[in-house]
Design a protein around this nucleic acid. Sequence first.
DNA 1: ATATAATCTTAGCAGCGTTAAGATTATGGA
DNA 2: TCCATAATCTTAACGCTGCTAAGATTATAT
Lengths: 190, 190
Amino acid sequence: MSKRAYHHGNLKQELIDRGLEFIDQNGVESLSMRKLAILSGVSSAAPYAHFKNKKAFLSEVQNYITEQFTDTLQKTYEMCNDRERVLLELGKSYVLFFRQNPLFYSFIFSHGEIDVNYYPPFQMFQHIVREVLNELYGGKIDEQSIYNKTLAMWAMVHGLAQLYTFPAFRTMDNRNMEDKIEDILSSVTI
Amino acid sequence: MSKRAYHHGNLKQELIDRGLEFIDQNGVESLSMRKLAILSGVSSAAPYAHFKNKKAFLSEVQNYITEQFTDTLQKTYEMCNDRERVLLELGKSYVLFFRQNPLFYSFIFSHGEIDVNYYPPFQMFQHIVREVLNELYGGKIDEQSIYNKTLAMWAMVHGLAQLYTFPAFRTMDNRNMEDKIEDILSSVTI
DNA sequence: ATATAATCTTAGCAGCGTTAAGATTATGGA
DNA sequence: TCCATAATCTTAACGCTGCTAAGATTATAT
């Protein structure tokens, strides 16, 4: 594992980690495989022993972020005992994740490869909306209505998440933000 | 104006037009100034007589698209006589614009330069939400509540617009889509 | 111990954004 | 109408990029 070793020992993971860091600070646009390689103390062609091409590399970084994101939402869901507030808390968690790392948002969602119906964060919304509606109106809600309301709520939260990645919203501190997000989300009703 | 003229005559506009076309078909990622120049029948350095750099060029294309988008929304607003449906129609118009040109969405919104408070489409939402609330609850609505509901509605529509640019939603025909969008948007209430 | 596979370096290709220097053409004032 | 100047274009070049081929080095598995 010495610095002068011919074999790096952990290059693949280091490239991913440095990629994450770079995207977080500078965005994908200016990321280059060569820079990442040099940063990792390795020649500029070395990454191609681990990734087919740049696209495949970025795809792995995307998956990594998506996992972190999903875990964050999952923890929020598990930590919330008040069933009336779970949708609100999930929304706040969703928005805050991308506010903390604004450049992740466009990196993840700009290359349109996700199928929403199988996207874990969306499925979580679906699960919760069903819970909420069941509690409100009993068991007699049709599936179409659940799906529509899920889409509506998810779209609102998702749109708000993008909104808060815009520069005009970067000055706020997080305390204020949480309250504002809550006010916005609770200004409409399912 | 002949093809062999040393001076193109209309290069700046042709570059923008071809840029629009290229982004619409292939996305920004694979756009290069050199290709655009060749496509326009001109040497690869010619564009730099009209644009400071690639970023400035893309910025002009962005503005062009945003103008078209704003005009589309404006026309929808003017054509809708039923005041109870104007918010719904605006939302549908918003979503459909980017569904017709999905690659425009990420191109416009992925580089986070817009200030929502001065973004014409957002201002239109604000205007309409104020109208609707005035009609519903009279003139006694506080500004904060209007702003929150505007953000909520805009975020929902904006998020839905992104949703419908994803591949999984590209198979639907437009008739079905309009109905579905309407169902989704009207599944929540202000 | 040795064959094989994995990992890395070096060198090089074509394409990119951009600039400098110079050629060509349009424009406005004498 | 002529001409200086500005606008527009070409050619050539720089350093950067993604990526590949060929070969060097090291790990692994029999």
